[in-house]
Nucleic acid binder design. Structure first.
Lengths: 211, 211, 211, 211
DNA sequence: AATGAATGAGTATTCATTCAT
DNA sequence: AATGAATGAATACTCATTCAT
């Protein structure tokens, strides 16, 4: 490897170093608490170097978010492959969630819980990326309906959102509270609720009628 | 009204002006983006006046949060009264939610979506207040179980969280996305999902077995 | 006493209350640390009332300083009366100093150690008042010379200053350090030094020649 | 000088510019009156640059104080060298004082006259540094006693303080007043007083007896 | 005369970003 | 390409002073 290509791969390295450092920071603290100086220090590069690869702090945030979103969507998509049931797929997704969290403190937190900063354009950009997640879920649910696994009379949009909310609950127990150390048994319970609802089966028929 | 009481209510007015301005600001922007200067300007008082009534920005945030929490819990508690079914109560709660949102741009957003700031004490304070919400729901769910409206084999904690997540979805459609203009029909769909689950009744028995 | 005269004497009281509170505050903290709010609170009057009697914080400082200076000069002048020796007078002055300090935490600290604030006019005013102290001492020293108690070949101005410096040393041990708990034995030693000098008597003649 | 060393000295320059500006400011005004903005302006650097080199205003004050203290102690220590008499040494010290003052508006003022701010830690820090000065003097006086130049029955601590007070008097004539333009003849007079005391030789013996 | 609610000028400090080397 | 010294805009908070009552 020549000095130049070495240099280039070094450059590639730098970008990655910075991005990984940024991701780590944005996962711990919110946008305003994170400083470029700290990211540079952790990435072991100069402060100016950060701007060599990212045009602004906002840009760096976006890229960090994307990095997490891609990682998530990827692990998400692998559950689509075979002919397994939709319920199983959802179970897998949510389980993978929990595993991701436990493994590497979860890149997911950023995806779901960072309040869309209203830095103008940044906000809508975050929402757009999140919509991608929702779209993926919607496809899955529609497939479930086709396969008769899922009731055909549901509000697909809402079901998708509810599923994402499920994941939010898993991710650090946030949404409303914080830090719930979600255990496996809770996971199963949550999915059961999502799948079967909260209602008592015996009184179900009446309920449906009353609606 | 006498001059004195007039004076008093005038003083109360300033405090209220500031608080309402703060609530409005904190609903739009996150903690760091909100400035005392802007709050003062919107409240049409001097910057110093803000500190006459609130000891710090954090304090003002807390009070804003409490203001919303109280408003919410109040409208929430009124649904507990009579002997109506739990399902109906939940329906009412979620409907009230939507109404609150539509009426006054929702004080609720703050309650559910402000990411607990990592300002040490403030963070745990927010979480504590949120726990109050969850406790209220848990009580409701337990009552539902007693009345045989709700299945007795569910994870109560998770069910409570899921219900709050439901509300989050309603509140501005946030949680994951943003700004969904939730309509009434969506509401009914969401509650239906919560109550009856997503699963197809016909395949339900098998699912339960497979679990 | 009528209600009116009562009111008037009440007003006089107010002024005094404020002044005494101010003196106490200025003795503890320096000019910038002292707040009108605190003075008003301690004087048990409204904030606005302070401005009824004193035109500004500077003015209040001046009056506080004057109050202390007058008290000091008065206790100082009482030592001039009889035909006692100048040395005895100085001893008395310095002893009185110490007593004043011990009694009421000394109004003297303010007189000697408050760095003349360079609030323009205030500065020169403080210096002027201090000059009065020096003038008093100078008179005393000249009297000592007349009475042959004090050498006639000394620099009177400097001797006066040195004597005031002595008192500074006593006042809280300040000047250079802080908080020396000056005891009586130190006092005697200090005066001895002032009166007899540091030089060894045996070598004194040579020293004088070498000069 | 290479580009690099040039750069380094350039960097050093900024720090020095700021420090010198700070010293100048702190000599004129007390801690609270001095503003970072003004220091930056005078040093011809940006406000942020000040914080590049000094962590806080307090830190900058400390460094300014230390700068003066070091300069003083250095010029002070050079008088200790040879076997010259203690009296001569003291004469030199006080003369050097005066020269320092005349030369560069005296960094000494800060050392002796800045009232120890009651900023908690800063206060005790200033006192500690001042104690160093006193210790130096005490050593000198003890040496004088050994050499029989100084009376062995004096209060060494007080003598040290008195000598420092002497210097205070010289430094801008402060202690009590301000701005005395001390001339050389005054200097000699002051030292004479310190060495020989104020007392009349003829009445000295009686005085000693009466004590 | 007495009050204290209201005010805004003033200040230390942080941090994203730039640019000369 | 890589750096980090330099910068200044931005912000929470304090407090002397005013003025309507």
């Amino acid at each position: 490897m020549t000095a130049i290509s070495n240099h280039k791969s070094g450059a590639g390295n730098k970008r990655e170093q910075i991005l990984l450092a940024a991701v780590e920071q944005f996962l711990e603290n919110d946008f305003y608490k994170v400083t470029i100086t700290e990211i540079a220090k952790q990435a072991e590069v100069g402060k100016g170097t950060v701007y060599e690869y990212f045009s602004s702090k906002e840009d760096l945030f976006k890229e960090s978010f994307s990095f997490c979103a891609d990682a998530y969507l990827q692990s998400f998509s692998k559950h689509f492959v075979d002919g397994s049931s939709v319920k199983k797929t959802m179970e897998d997704i949510i389980t993978t969630h929990l595993e991701l969290i436990k493994e590497n403190r979860s890149k997911l937190n950023l995806l779901f819980n960072e309040r869309p900063l209203n830095l103008q354009e940044l906000q809508s950009w975050v929402i757009k990326r999140r919509q991608e997640l929702l779209d993926g879920i919607t496809v899955l649910i529609k497939k479930g309906i086709e396969l008769d696994e899922i009731r055909s009379d549901i509000d697909v949009e809402m079901a998708g959102r509810l599923f994402l909310a499920l994941n939010c609950i898993v991710v650090g127990g946030m949404v409303v509270l914080d830090d719930l150390d979600i255990e496996e048994k809770h996971l199963a319970g949550l999915l059961d609720l999502f799948w079967n609802g909260i209602g008592n089966l015996e009184t179900l028929s009446q309920s449906k009628i009353s609606q």
